[in-house]
Amino acid sequence: MRSRFDEQLSILNKKLIVMGALCEEIIGISSDALLNGNSDKLENVKIIGSEIDRMEEEIEGICLKLLLLEHPVASDLRQISAALKMITDMERIGDQAEDIAEIIGFLNGRTGEECKEIRKMAETAIKMVNDSVDAYVNTDLELARSVYSFDDIVDDCFLKTKNKLIDMIAENKTDGEYPLDLLMIAKYIERIGDHAVNIAEWVEYSLTGVHKDNNKD
């Protein structure tokens, strides 16, 4: 009796999965270029970024329409409101991957090899994004919760990266622009980790009705 609504929810779900996959792809390309100097696909970043933006608009439209037409409650309401919040984080991930790709263009082939924490950070952030999207796709609460703990690793790496870059500047080993570019990349990666945590939190909310941040005293 609610087949039309279920159909719409299933469309919403599929679109979110596609958007999540695009996020995985775009940071995959950016980090591959950064860490391995593999810049073949960098030109795709802009195209994927635009597609992510378009999907954000499209999914937002579907969510607003469902809110208007179906007055969803309970798990339906949670699913739709979580979707509305998640697409904002996904869109930011797309933007930040684009920003990273742009900065890579200024590195003149250097890959930040002096700073092994950047590699660890990028690998961890990618895992966080993949896991949070997978947690949504597979309604996997444990996987969603596992994402939170990786944020500490990313934050820790960011701090170490920052200190290393400060040393690099102090020792005058390189031109001033290179460490600053690396720092910006590191910051973007750190933000991507935060967005992945947000997505995981909305997955948890959608599944349990409890949002991690609202549960703190």
């Binding site: 009796m1 969803p72 409650v73 309970a74 949670r78 009705g209």
Partner: peptide, 18 residues
């Protein structure tokens, strides 16, 4: 009740599943 009902039957009723 309307955001996170405890009982599956409540959930099914208010979401229009029966």
């Amino acid at each position: 009740i309307f955001s996170n009902p405890l009982d599956k039957r409540t959930e099914n009723y208010i979401t229009g599943r029966f």
